[in-house]
Design a protein around this nucleic acid. Structure first.
Length: 320
DNA sequence: AATTATATCAACCGCTGCAAG
DNA sequence: TCTTGCAGCGGTTGATATAAT
C-alpha cells in the first residue's frame, strides 16, 4: 500500500515552528484536546500536517516534559533499558515519563553510545569488544537465556502497551465527557494529564495503569526474601522508593554499581549480560546461574525475575 | 577574526500495526 | 478476509551552535 505523505499536500509548511504556530497549537489543544491529528491543523488554523503537529506537541509543547541535562540516574536507566530493549525508544521512554522518546534517542546517539564505544563496549550488544570474540559455552547459554528473557519482555511490553491504549481511550472519553460538561480552560492540565487519583501521568506512559489490571498487579511489596538483589537494585535505580534501604541488605556486586561513577556502570551491566559470575555473583537471582539447573527452570526463573523487575518499575514511577 | 570541523537536537520520512468498515 | 486511514515508532537529515585551528 503506497500513500503519499500527508505533508506533500500543497501549501503545507515544513521546518522549524514559529512561536505563533506554537501558540496556535497550544491554544487549540488546551481548548479542545488534540482529537484527530489529521483534522487538527485545519481546525487550529495551522498550515501544517497533522503529523507535524503531533510531533511538535509530543516532543516539545506537552506540559509535562522535562527538558535540559540528563541526570546520571537517567543515563543509567537508559543504558540499562537499552540493554534490555534495544532501540525501542518509546518503551524506554515509558520508564522516564518526563522525557520523550525522541530526546532519549538523541541523547543515546550523541552521548551514551559514544561513551560506551570509548570504553570498548559494543553499544548494540552491551558487551566488551574482546569478550564478544571469545564465546565459551557458558556464555552461549547466557546469551540464549538473555534471548528468552528478551522475548518474554517483548511480549510483556506488547500486552502493557495494549492495556495502556485501552486505558487511554477510557481516559480520553472521561476527558471529553468532562470537557462537555465543564469546558474550563484552567483545568486543562489536570484533566488531560492526571489520573483520577490526581497523580501526574505521562500521555505516552504505559506504566501508570498497573493497578487496574491483573497483569500488573504484583505490588511493590514483594516479600523481601523473594526479591533478588538485582531486582531490588534495579528498582532502586528506577525510583526513589523505600526500597533504597534494601540495598544495604544485599551485598550484591552487580547493579549496586549504579551508585558508582559512570565509568563503572556499564561495566557492571555488561557483566550481567555476559553472566559474568565474578561480577554478578550467583546468589539465586537467576541472572548468572552457572549450568546446574535445567534450561526450563532457568527460563522460568528468569521469567519470574523479569516479571518482578518490570512490575517493580511499573509500581515505582521514576521521578527525577 | 575567519574558517572549518564537530556536536546537538528538532523535525521529517517512511514504515508498521491496529482498528474500522 | 481485504482495504483503508490513522497514529505511532525508529532512522535519518539538516539547521544551528559550539569548539578547534
Amino acid at each position: 500500500m503506497v500513500r503519499s505523505p500527508c505533508c506533500d499536500k500543497a501549501g503545507l509548511k515544513k521546518g522549524p515552528w514559529t512561536p505563533e504556530e506554537d501558540q496556535k497549537l497550544l491554544a487549540y489543544i488546551e481548548e479542545h484536546g488534540h482529537g484527530s491529528w489529521r483534522s487538527l491543523p485545519e481546525k487550529a488554523g495551522l498550515q501544517r500536517c497533522g503529523k507535524s503537529c503531533r510531533l511538535r506537541w509530543t516532543n516539545y509543547l506537552r506540559p509535562d516534559i522535562k527538558r535540559g541535562k540528563f541526570t546520571v540516574q537517567e543515563e543509567q536507566t537508559i543504558i540499562q533499558l537499552h540493554a534490555l530493549l534495544g532501540n525501542r525508544w518509546s518503551a524506554i521512554a515509558t520508564h522516564l515519563p518526563k522525557r520523550t522518546d525522541n530526546e532519549i534517542k538523541n541523547y543515546w546517539n550523541t552521548h551514551l553510545k559514544k561513551r560506551l564505544v570509548k570504553m570498548g563496549i559494543d553499544p548494540v550488544t552491551h558487551k566488551h569488544k574482546n569478550e564478544t570474540l571469545s564465546s565459551s559455552s557458558g556464555q552461549s547459554k547466557n546469551a540464549a537465556t538473555l534471548s528468552h528473557m528478551a522475548q518474554w519482555e517483548s511480549a510483556r511490553l506488547e500486552a502493557e502497551a495494549r492495556l495502556a491504549r485501552e486505558s487511554k481511550l477510557l481516559h480520553l472519553q472521561h476527558y471529553q465527557n468532562n470537557n462537555n460538561i465543564n469546558n474550563n480552560k484552567s483545568n486543562f492540565t489536570h484533566k488531560t494529564w492526571t489520573k483520577p487519583n490526581g497523580d501526574l501521568e505521562s500521555p505516552t506512559s504505559t506504566v501508570t495503569f498497573s493497578e487496574n489490571h491483573p497483569l500488573m498487579t504484583m505490588p511493590l511489596g514483594i516479600p523481601t526474601e523473594n526479591r533478588t538483589p538485582a531486582m531490588i537494585d534495579f528498582a532502586v535505580s528506577s525510583s526513589t522508593s523505600s526500597d533504597v534501604t534494601l540495598v544495604k541488605e544485599h551485598d550484591h556486586d552487580w547493579m549496586r554499581q549504579i551508585n558508582c561513577p559512570t565509568e563503572e556502570i556499564e561495566e557492571g551491566f555488561t557483566s550481567l549480560l555476559l553472566g559474568d559470575t565474578t561480577a554478578g555473583k550467583n546468589d539465586g537471582s537467576g541472572v548468572s546461574v552457572a549450568g546446574a539447573e535445567s534450561d526450563y527452570s532457568y527460563y522460568e526463573d528468569n521469567k519470574n525475575y523479569w516479571n518482578s523487575i518490570l512490575n517493580l518499575v511499573d509500581s515505582s514511577p521514576s521521578d527525577f
